[in-house]
Design a protein around this nucleic acid. Structure first.
Length: 269
DNA sequence: TTCTGTGTTCCCCA
DNA sequence: CTGGGGAACACAGA
């Protein structure tokens, strides 16, 4: 499940490794992940040179001389840079470069690779509707948005229109560090609580980003991220003691997602 | 075999 | 308008 730390890491690696490369060919094994017909996708981008790679929330944005390539890995996947003759076992799409290297993009489920013409980024609904990036948003803007919503804090944080980049893996520790129960009303948090939440988001995402993301995702060379299982405080640790107070960590259903909380540190009221 | 888990959109309902 | 809840997508691991 790639979230901001993994996506931002991939974008940095792509910026370092791909800028200046010219696109030579495509292999599109799953046309459904595109937003336009495969032939059009290839025609629009053939001969383009990569100029920059960045991210916004969970989206990777590649700027080329002939438009943008927007990548969303959905619920998990890899972006691998290899020689053309050395493909990974599974991939949905590959982009070949003139120097003989190739970018192989895979995802388990629900990933996207979209083309947007130069100057038309604002017409791409899926990225245009995103809120500020979770590591870019100011505390004032975060608090302002939080106060506007009457939904559960967890729902607020996962809704990419509010702020972009948090998913259902890092959120457990973010809420735990802020001592906020996932089902508290977003608009009901006091100043102290929203400040703790903002700080927790920054600390959690930044520390994983500095380690090149989570151990369950890999970099362009196939190497796992440095954010290890032991770095997770309470997420996915049902029944284990809370690192703060020793209470048994609980797993609970919150809407359609699962949450992990410390029942003593994160009270509902 | 059957269940669950991840992201995102979309659609219905109160 | 808001927010909750579900379906859809057609995979991988237990």
């Amino acid at each position: 499940m790639p979230e901001l730390p993994e996506i931002a890491s991939r974008a940095c690696e792509m910026q370092a490794a791909l800028v200046g490369k010219t696109i030579h060919s495509f292999e599109i094994l799953q046309p459904k992940c595109l937003n336009i017909p495969a032939e059009d996708f290839s025609t629009c981008l053939a001969g383009a040179t990569l100029e920059a790679a960045s991210h916004h929330g969970k989206w990777i944005i590649c700027e080329t001389t002939q438009g943008y390539v927007l990548i969303n890995l959905g619920m998990g996947g890899e972006i691998l840079l290899r020689e053309t003759g050395n493909p990974p076992k599974k991939y949905r799409l590959s982009i070949g470069f003139q120097d003989g290297t190739r970018l192989f993009i895979n995802f388990w489920w629900f990933g996207y690779v979209h083309f947007v013409a130069t100057g038309m980024l604002s017409t791409h609904a899926m990225t245009a509707k995103l809120g500020p990036d979770a590591l870019e948003i100011t505390e004032a803007e975060f608090t302002r948005r939080l106060r506007l919503k009457n939904t559960a804090v967890k729902t607020f944080l996962l809704d990419q229109k509010n702020l972009a980049g948090i998913g259902n893996a890092y959120i457990h520790d973010i809420l735990f560090l802020a001592r906020v129960h996932p089902l508290r009303k977003a608009s009901g948090l006091d100043g102290e609580e929203s400040h703790r939440l903002y700080t927790s988001i920054r600390n959690s995402l930044q520390s994983s980003f500095e380690k090149k993301g989570a151990f369950y995702e890999v970099d362009l060379q196939g190497k796992p991220g440095g954010f290890q299982e032991k770095d997770i405080l309470i997420g996915y640790r049902e029944g284990k003691p809370c690192p703060e107070c020793g209470s048994a960590i609980q797993k609970l259903r919150t809407g359609s997602t699962t949450s992990f909380i410390c029942p003593s540190c994160q009270l509902i009221s």
